[in-house]
Design a binder for these strands. Structure first.
Lengths: 167, 167
DNA sequence: CTAGAAACGACAACTAAGGTGTCATTCTAA
DNA sequence: TTAGAATGACACCTTAGTTGTCGTTTCTAG
């Protein structure tokens, strides 16, 4: 394939590893993308999630892990817009899964917090996720999986940095 | 957090690795999802892609790697519907990036093939991807990256199998 | 060689997800 | 105190993708 010839010409004295590594990263990115779509499809079939980007699970997860946050704070750490998170927060509040509590730092921008019901729902979803996860990766070693997650996270951060640099 | 207590109770004699591994896989899945969104955001900013699921890049990549295929064949290996791929094929054909050639096995279902222009475009996009990839993962080792890609692929396959089992 | 089943192309809604824009209010910092 | 940034609220719109249908074509089994 012609595309394999792009980049440094291997007939020169340039380090071939530069290309090999770039290719490996590109492959990993494509693999991640494909994996995501399959995860999403599975999530939809199991009813675990409806969407991932502006999805409720990630939103609730942020609150469960980090405690009460303002809507803009949540939006900053999620791959979507402030308005989207605002709407999601309102929807979850309407379902009684989250509540707005006073923010000592800001009178208008309330803190969003999981209600008891919301925490229970999150635990339930998380348990479902665990149930699914426990049936997968049978051939894999836990240490390898953790290392994989760490590397994906690192790639993720790299992508984010480069993405933000483009403004 | 309460959610970390789901699954096997560690105070019993059950193997704690089962839970640890499931948790690791769940974490990996979430990491993959987040990474995907960041990759997509980067792709949009660079103009490299418009979408990934029914996107043109993956479509053309399939053709570049595997040679001429019918629309249903492409749809089977991509995370989207036959109709979507049909429409995409038509759009790409309108742009002169792919062409329909006679299929010896099937008179009506033509084979889709990259045109010279399409191949050039794909190479160009691939070069862009490589350019981006070459600036990332500086701290990572190529072997680790390849292993990571392999494990993600394995997870991806596991997810696919489980997803298909649910019909 | 046929009849029924499946695959295919084409087309048309329909939905979901999220982006974008705006405006009034509130906070922050010079 | 005042200019500028952050926030909540609301409305509109674009895009991606699904779903459904229909007529035709191809495959398969008897």
């Amino acid at each position: 394939m012609a595309s394999a010839r792009h980049g440094t010409d291997r007939t020169t004295g340039a380090d071939p590893n530069v290309d090999g590594k770039a290719e490996a990263i590109a492959e990993l990115m494509l693999e991640v993308a494909q994996c995501f779509f399959r995860i999403r499809a599975l999530g939809q079939k199991t009813g675990l999630i409806t969407s991932w980007g502006g999805g409720a699970f990630g939103f609730m997860r942020s609150l469960a892990l980090l405690g009460p946050l303002t809507v803009p704070q949540i939006a900053q750490m999620r791959p979507t817009s402030r308005q989207r998170m605002q709407r999601l927060a309102d929807e979850l509040a309407a379902e009684g899964l989250v509540e707005f509590i006073d923010n000592p730092k800001h009178r208008r921008s309330k803190l969003v917090q999981l209600t008891r019901k919301g925490a229970a729902r999150y635990d339930e979803l998380n348990a479902q996720l665990m149930a699914i996860a426990s049936t997968m990766g049978v051939a894999l070693d836990e240490a390898d999986i953790r290392k994989t997650a760490a590397i994906v996270r690192q790639l993720s951060d790299d992508v984010k940095v480069r993405s933000e640099r483009l403004g």
